[in-house]
């Protein structure tokens, strides 16, 4: 195939402890370490491996988010993507709007395969890939743990509740990745240096003509209640009494 498109998202680094903003409107990201979403990193790795096997000619990474998301795109370029595009927006953006923006890029770039992370570790929406497939009217295979391209067909093994399911999809298609699909590589120093010379095109979201107005209203964000201190009970009957009083049994 000629081209694989890999949409990626920049998220709060999984090792950082999230802090809720003082006004309760969301998570405070100022000064925090932001990284490429782990599922998206797996998507980039898979696309680059297909290219290295000679099954794809070009890998394009795309992100929708703030200017800082260029860092995540540079990482995708260092891993082996050929070029990158950022659709820049500072506002809140929801999966449907993201899927529409990706569809717009698909129309322009004409990839045969789109590989995305199955979800982002910040909001865990797990929607964008499915919405994109529906908007494009392409076949989709989500939660991929193995992927094999054979001519114009992609065979995808999915992790489902009952075990593994293997689907064969005619290209073009949308695939979303699960954690076991691969282990992303360590970038080499020369590739990190080369990545900054690769094309990274930035388009403001306003120039895309896509409605990105949020459909959801955030009522409030608060951290989980801290666990209350425990209490030692004297015997089983006191325990049962307390559980009853708490309405637990």
């Amino acid at each position: 195939m000629k081209k694989i498109l890999v949409p990626i998202k920049m998220v709060l680094d999984a090792n950082m402890r999230p802090r809720v903003k003082a006004d309760g409107t969301g998570i405070d990201l100022s000064g925090m370490k932001l990284s490429i979403n782990p599922f998206c990193e797996i998507a980039v790795e898979e696309a680059v491996r297909l290219k290295e096997k000679g099954l794809a000619e070009q890998v394009v990474a795309i992100s929708i988010g703030p200017a800082k998301a260029q860092d995540s795109l540079r990482q995708a370029l260092a891993m082996g993507a050929d070029s990158a595009r950022l659709i820049e927006t500072d506002g809140p953006i929801e999966p449907l709007a993201v899927a529409k923006l990706i569809r717009m890029v698909v129309d322009e770039e004409k990839p045969e395969l789109v590989i995305l992370g199955k979800q982002a570790v910040d909001d865990d929406c797990n929607q964008t890939g499915q919405m994109l497939a529906a908007l494009l009217d392409w076949p989709q295979a989500t939660f991929a743990s193995a992927l094999r391209v054979e001519g114009t067909v992609v065979h995808v093994t999915r992790e489902v509740d009952g075990g593994h399911q293997t689907l064969s999809l005619p290209l073009p298609a949308v695939v979303t990745t699960d954690l076991r699909l691969n282990e992303p590589r360590h970038c080499s120093l020369p590739n990190i240096m080369k990545a900054r010379k690769k094309a990274l095109d930035v388009t403001p979201v306003a120039a895309c003509g896509v409605d990105t107005v949020p459909r959801l209203k955030v009522l409030g964000v608060k951290p989980p209640e801290p666990r209350k201190a425990g209490r030692r009970v004297a015997d089983v009957s006191e325990l049962v009494g307390d559980l009853r009083a708490a309405g637990a049994i």
Binding site: D71, R74, I192, M193
Partner: peptide
């Protein structure tokens, strides 16, 4: 700083 940060991260 961006490239230095990428290098140190990797």
């Amino acid at each position: 700083l961006e490239i230095i940060s990428s290098i140190l991260e990797e």
